[in-house]
Design a protein around this nucleic acid. Structure first.
Length: 233
DNA sequence: GCGACAG
DNA sequence: ATCTTGTCGC
């Protein structure tokens, strides 16, 4: 069953309006616990054939990098993929997964942008404000903005500001030597400097944060299992 | 009008 | 996002 999601420009308007309200609530400074103990990663896997999605959140101990809790939620896809409105597609399943957690994280790293977004309300910002938890956007690809590619060196830890119309909206960060950089921006209740320092700390071994990797692996495993079960029944 | 465009 | 194995390089 290919349950199509038809959204016209008019249908999308209220969501753009909601972004304008959310943008006013962003806090671009550190409002963090004295010591970060738990840090979470989130991700969603989709099955367009069945029209279902699985959202997951994985909580990791910030000092040991070990997974301390996982939660997930399966539900119908309610929103199409529209660049700029990505959070409305992704967030519902993540919120439900979050509710199932016993251990609430001090900070969430999202697989997508924070304020490095046309309306300054990307996935990380939307989620951070909704849950009232500090959040970081760490995306694999640029959405908006430019950076000086010549000044971004190939060494791990090299960082350049992501600029749009003269405004610094994020950081382009090389998390490993000779790999493509990631795009870090603040989500909510954090400063850009803290955001990319923590991101780098979570990328000791790989290009992407351990949080993102853990959430990604979990949803992909769950989706694979689900597809096999559906085939049986 | 023509691209660009998180996952 | 997803379709997809081996393989070149550090």
């Amino acid at each position: 069953m290919n349950s199509e999601l038809h959204f016209t420009e008019k249908d999308l308007r209220p969501f753009y309006e909601q972004q304008i309200k959310l943008e006013k609530l962003v806090i671009d400074q550190d409002v963090l616990p004295d010591e970060i103990k738990y840090i979470a990663g989130v991700d969603v896997a989709y099955n367009d054939d069945s029209g279902e999605m699985i959202g997951a959140i994985v909580v990791i101990d910030f000092s040991t990098k070990e997974i301390v809790e996982e939660a997930f939620h399966e539900m119908q896809i309610t929103f199409p993929y529209v660049p700029g409105l990505f959070s409305f597609r992704e967030i519902p399943a993540i919120i439900e997964a979050f509710k199932k957690l016993k251990i609430k994280p001090d900070l969430i790293i999202c697989d997508g942008h924070g304020i490095a977004h046309p309306k300054r309300v990307g996935m990380a910002t939307h989620l951070g404000i909704t849950l009232d938890i500090p959040s970081i956007g760490c995306a694999k690809k640029r959405l908006i903005g430019t950076w000086d590619k010549d000044r971004l060196h190939s060494e791990r830890g090299s960082v350049e500001p992501l600029i749009l119309d003269g405004e610094k909206i994020g950081a382009v960060l090389r998390t490993q030597k000779n790999v493509k950089p990631v795009f870090v921006s603040i989500g909510h209740k954090i400063s850009l400097e803290t955001a990319y320092a923590i991101t780098l700390e979570m990328c000791k071994k790989y290009r992407l944060p351990e949080t993102t990797r853990a959430a990604d692996q979990l949803v992909n495993k769950l989706m694979k299992e689900k597809l096999e079960n559906d085939k049986m029944a």
